[in-house]
């Protein structure tokens, strides 16, 4: 049975090792609004923030490219840092990049490795809590969108999504719809219908002045 839990809700009368919970007086309590699955023992936040894990992919923007380090904006309560001597990619301020999280240090800085510059396109900011749904199981959801729209998409676990080429407007609409309906069943089918393999072009009609 899945159910919505809120901050402070007791989800077990014993201590559990579970993300987004705290243990007080031997009981496990949720700290967020989330979907708790007692059978599977999982708590998935419905709103909110990104907690970086080593190995995760991010999308970011170069805020300050310096000689030895590059500071990356991640649209998150953490700054990304790339140590340039370990990286052969050269960047300038304003570049969009994707990279991998190496570690989060105690001061709230994330060390990033393996950066790659993404040229052109645009960046969307979605709620980090919706990223897993956007990717889907084994990336099925995101593949559906790229297949249907022929757009190139790079999804960062921090909630920044880079979109370029193909029918990027339709891809954008689909991404926003997933964010809004992430917890409703049947989403995969609805998105399939939306980006359809029917090849329906979805272009907002240009309008004349006046």
């Amino acid at each position: 049975m899945k159910k919505i839990v809120l901050p402070g809700d007791i989800i077990a009368d014993k201590p559990l090792r579970l993300d987004h919970t705290i243990v007080e007086e031997g009981k496990t309590c949720s700290t967020v609004i989330g979907m708790f699955d007692e059978a599977a023992g999982s708590l998935i936040p419905l709103e909110g923030l990104w907690y970086p894990q080593p190995g995760e992919k991010i999308v970011g923007i170069v805020e300050e490219a310096k000689l030895n380090t590059d500071v990356i904006t991640l649209n998150a309560p953490y700054k990304g840092l790339i140590i340039s001597k370990f990286s052969e990619t050269s960047m300038v301020n304003g570049d969009i990049i994707e990279a991998t999280v190496k570690e989060l240090d105690k001061t709230g800085t994330i060390i990033l490795v393996r950066p790659r510059v993404l040229y052109g396109g645009k960046v969307l900011a979605i709620k980090p809590s919706k990223v897993p749904r956007l990717l889907g199981k084994n990336d099925t959801m995101i593949r559906q969108i790229t297949d249907g729209t022929k757009a190139s998409i790079s999804v960062g676990m921090n909630g920044l999504v880079w979109v370029k080429g193909g029918n990027s407007d339709l891809a954008t609409d689909a991404i926003i719809r997933i964010q809004e309906e992430s917890h409703v069943s049947g989403l995969t089918e609805r998105i399939a219908k939306m980006v359809g393999s029917t090849g329906q072009p979805h272009q907002p009609q240009p309008q004349q002045q006046g």
């Binding site: 301020n93 396109g121 645009k122 960046v123």
Partner: peptide, 10 residues
């Protein structure tokens, strides 16, 4: 430098 520069181009 932030998201807005990219939005601008778009």
């Amino acid at each position: 430098m932030n998201i807005s520069t990219i939005t601008e181009q778009y």
